[in-house]
Design a protein around this nucleic acid. Structure first.
Lengths: 135, 135
DNA sequence: CCAGCTATATGACTAAGTCTATTATTGGAG
DNA sequence: CTCCAATAATAGACTTAGTCATATAGCTGG
């Protein structure tokens, strides 16, 4: 991966470091609400749809995590589910968004706006101190 | 708690929902790296400095969480620490950023840029589907 | 002297998510 | 026809991060 010793040691330190990303998992919830606003879908399809979002960028998220998330969201009344055994293939649990889920998504908009603003500020701080440091 | 039945049900659903925010905790790490780039500080002061950032907006974060985070970051070689018993008051553990920590912060810049972009896209998707829904 | 702020740390707990494995249906390759 | 791969969902064990409550100790002001 790298040629220099320094490169190797830094990469070892960085392995599994949150600076590598992968903290956006929590944003799965609003992403699911968006997906379910557009159509009723079953878990497996939701996993595939999530993979297409910029946040997963083609890699499918861990399906177990998504299923657990869907269960939790149902428990909190954001989405509802039912079994569909009418079509071919294994039984599918379909989900739809509820009124509570729509309300939640509207709140998410405010939260995401704040996150966007805060991350922007954090970013400019980070840039400021690192460029000063590089001089 | 509320006057209307509908109000009660929605409030119950929304209580402790991530749409309320508070998921930005993970950004504590880059924030600490920024703070320590500017000065060597002890944990308690870091807690107070964090409170001043837009992300905590005046409320002090749980100090236990920050102390644990500092310990974890030290273990991963991003920061180093030593005791200062020279000044008045209880002993203070001071932290400084290491070369590994500086490298980590540079990576954080790329990660934060991506988060910024992704949240922006998620936000515009969320707005698109909810306004369509409201019509 | 003791209340309260400064300063750090531990134990118990909780939430969220990962990894591994299990079950079941169906379609297609050989 | 058989077996493999893809579809579809789930449970158990584990890990990580973080909270809450509590403990300790030094110092300051009333």
């Amino acid at each position: 991966m790298t040629k220099s010793i320094i490169g190797v040691s830094l990469i070892l330190e960085i392995k599994n470091c949150p600076c590598e990303g992968k903290y956006l998992d929590k944003m799965v919830q609003p992403a699911i609400l968006i997906i379910l606003t557009e159509a009723n879908l079953h878990g497996y399809k939701i996993v595939q749809k999530l993979a297409e979002t910029p946040m997963f960028n083609g890699d499918e998220p861990d399906p177990t995590g998504v299923y657990r998330c869907l269960k939790a969201m149902e428990k909190r009344g954001l989405i509802g589910s039912w079994w569909d055994i009418s079509r071919t293939g294994p039984a599918k649990r379909f989900y739809r968004i509820t009124e509570g889920g729509k309300e939640c998504l509207r709140r998410w908009i405010e939260t995401l706006e704040e996150y966007h603003r805060i991350i922007g500020m954090l970013l400019s701080e980070a840039k400021k101190v690192t460029t000063k440091d590089r001089s």
